[in-house]
């Protein structure tokens, strides 16, 4: 029994049941397959992270974001007048996460690609774009760059899904995708 020492002292050279061997084979092949699937998706799949990251500082990232906001703001939205920015297709877009907002609101063209830069100026935040359901982690001090291509239009909201203090549940951002 499993709670007693094996009654056969030489247990290690006993043959293995066929059924166990088959199952081990299946499990092992499946493991290999799942490993290859991740690599395969990097080559043929459309949803991959870029791995492009830079070290940054809150000041630097804030100033880049402000420069973009100044250049491309088209209107304001919400009670607090959050700027809505419509950057040119293909351009570098900055999205800043801080307690407790995503700044600014973005307006993107459907089907166009943008290089989105994301960072936080204080704690960690979560970027959870709904309803398309893209979830990324945002760190202070690191600038993550990602090319996104919105392929559906409408209003998308960014929910913060990393706990970031008492205002966490009020932290929302927005992306408009227009045709």
């Amino acid at each position: 029994m499993a709670i007693h020492s094996p009654s056969d002292r030489i247990w290690w050279n006993k043959p293995i049941e066929k059924m166990e061997l088959i199952w081990i084979g299946i499990a092992f092949c499946w493991g290999l397959f799942m490993f290859c699937a991740m690599i395969w998706w990097h080559i043929y799949g459309e949803q991959n992270l870029s791995n492009e990251t830079y070290k940054t500082t809150p000041e630097l990232f804030e100033s880049r974001t402000e420069a973009m906001v100044e250049a491309y703001t088209v209107r304001e939205e919400g009670d607090t007048g959050i700027p809505v920015v419509h950057p040119p297709a293909g351009s570098d877009v900055y999205l800043l996460a801080r307690r407790w907002e995503f700044y600014p609101i973005l307006e993107l063209d459907m089907g166009q690609s943008y290089r989105i830069h994301m960072s936080s100026t204080d704690w960690q935040h979560g970027f959870s774009l709904q309803p398309t359901n893209i979830n990324l982690q945002i760190h202070p001090g690191y600038e993550m760059v990602l090319t996104i291509t919105p392929d559906s239009s409408g209003v998308f909201n960014i929910v913060c899904n990393e706990f970031c203090g008492i205002g966490h549940h009020q932290m929302l951002g927005r992306i408009h995708v227009v045709e």
Partner: peptide, 22 residues
């Protein structure tokens, strides 16, 4: 369906922007 973990209010009643999960 996208609902965030560690989140006190998924109806976002007192957020400046508004959003509803399905």
């Amino acid at each position: 369906l996208g609902v965030a973990r560690r989140h006190w209010d998924i109806t976002f009643a007192d957020a400046t922007l508004s959003f509803e999960y399905p």
